[in-house]
């Protein structure tokens, strides 16, 4: 963790998906960075995303298989309804069922060591 990203992971630890917001011009930005590229303000806070969005793009990772991950691994790029994008994992979905434009919802996945990771599932799925 560094000074520019630790807050996001702390929000995840509190079961929240964070989005950085510029306090100068209220622009949302992700991934976070210390200065607003539009108004150059260094002041920012974070809003909690609704967790709802749609699949902008995806890939299914099959090889090489690294320890600690379950394959095939469905990775999604999600257009959040707030307007920013986030890269994450789609869980509980067979690779053949993922598609562009599908609605998704965020949930928090807890690793055995307690580390929490915001991931997504298809909207309305269990």
């Amino acid at each position: 963790m560094g000074l520019d990203n630790a807050w996001w992971w702390k929000m995840a630890a509190d079961d929240k998906l964070g989005i950085q917001r510029c306090l100068g011009c209220l622009t949302l930005r992700h991934p976070p960075r210390p200065m607003c590229g539009d108004c150059h303000s260094l002041e920012w806070d974070a809003v909690e995303a609704s967790g709802k969005g749609s699949i902008c793009s995806y890939t299914v990772l099959r090889h090489p298989q690294f320890p600690g991950y379950e394959y095939p691994l469905v990775i999604v790029l999600v257009d959040l309804e707030e307007g920013t994008r986030v890269t994450s994992q789609l869980v509980g979905c067979e690779p053949e069922d993922v598609d562009f434009g599908l609605q998704v919802e965020m949930l928090i996945q807890r690793d055995p060591d307690g580390f929490k990771l915001p991931v997504f599932k298809l909207a309305g799925s269990a």
Binding site: S57, Y58, T59, L61, P64, F66, Y69, L73, I75, L77, T87, S88, Q89, L117, V119
Partner: peptide, 12 residues
């Protein structure tokens, strides 16, 4: 999330 290799980044 397991995106560890160049192919995973480009595939998106």
């Amino acid at each position: 999330y397991g995106m560890l290799i160049p192919g995973s980044w480009i595939a998106m």
